[in-house]
């Protein structure tokens, strides 16, 4: 039986550093189910600290994967999951409505912080896996697809209903486009993609037969990845990153600027207010 992992708590985000047969695995867990894991200031604070801890555990600043092996005992697999029934519902709209400044500095901050999380998740020298149950929408979909692989339960769904908010999903465009060639219907129609369709389109790599089997699939995936050659795995990931022209520093920066260009406009302020007016406060 595995001893309990070491848990680091960063507000609504936990980082589990596993041991024994799962040694080399770290899990980022979003823990705000009552707010459907919405990405607000506290969640971003937690995510950024958890990613920073992952960077330290993977030794990202201590080696270059193409020229040397990872440090001994480095984390080689990072999983991202959530408790509850929603992976992540996207930005915290209530916080955006409550932001009185018409120039929407909070929305701009959320977009910048999301872009930062996506860039840092991509750059981890470990293989990253998102474990998705329930909705992964907008910024939540971006977090899921920024990982190298996504595994999901049959109730998972993905999508970018952000045009309903007058917000461009461009910031997430590079990571989604790298995963699937279905970015146009997803971004323009705001289509919600069910798990089976996501599997067909390459958004999801593996689907658990039932929701209660997702944890078992996640464990199996982690064990399989941990059994690979650590040196080969880190080098292969870096080589793939170097040759992925969808996602690089410039494309991520351009995408962020495209999303920021709409912030503070009348359309965005009106539609965000409208979207939250029908929702009960969490």
């Amino acid at each position: 039986m595995n001893p309990a992992p070491t848990i680091h708590r960063f507000g609504p985000v936990e980082l589990h550093n596993h041991s024994n047969e799962l040694s080399g695995l770290a899990t980022i867990r979003l823990c705000d189910p009552d707010r459907r894991q919405a990405l607000g200031s506290a969640m971003f604070d937690g995510l950024e600290l958890a990613i920073e801890k992952c960077e330290a555990l993977t030794g990202s600043s201590r080696f270059h994967p193409l020229s040397e092996p990872p440090p001994a005992n480095a984390v080689r697999v990072v999983m991202m999951e959530s408790n509850g029934t929603t992976f992540c519902s996207g930005f915290d709209l209530r916080a955006l409505v409550d932001d009185p400044d018409p120039s929407q500095p909070l929305l701009a901050s959320f977009l910048r912080r999301l872009a930062g999380c996506l860039r840092r998740l991509r750059a981890l020298p470990a293989v990253s896996v998102s474990v998705v149950q329930g909705p992964a929408l907008a910024g939540g979909c971006a977090l899921a697809t920024a990982c190298d692989l996504t595994i999901a339960s049959p109730d998972a769904c993905f999508g970018y209903p952000t045009h309903l908010l007058g917000v461009s999903p461009a910031v997430s465009g590079p990571v989604f486009h790298a995963r699937s060639n279905s970015a146009r219907p997803a971004f323009l129609e705001g289509e919600k993609i069910d798990a089976a369709t996501a599997l067909q389109r390459g958004i999801v790599w593996a689907l658990a037969p039932h929701t209660d089997q997702l944890a078992s699939l996640a464990r199996q995936t982690a064990m399989s990845l941990l059994a690979k050659g650590p040196r080969a795995l880190a080098a292969t990931k870096q080589w793939l990153l170097d040759h992925d022209d969808c996602v690089n520093h410039k494309s991520l920066q351009n995408a962020l600027q495209a999303s920021l260009s709409l912030v503070g406009g009348e359309e965005s302020r009106r539609l965000v207010r409208h979207a939250t007016s029908a929702r009960p406060r969490a």
Binding site: R179, S180, K228
Partner: peptide, 11 residues
């Protein structure tokens, strides 16, 4: 595509 290549080569 980059996403599928990543999945196949890393797994």
């Amino acid at each position: 595509g980059a996403g599928r290549a990543r999945a196949i080569l890393l797994t």
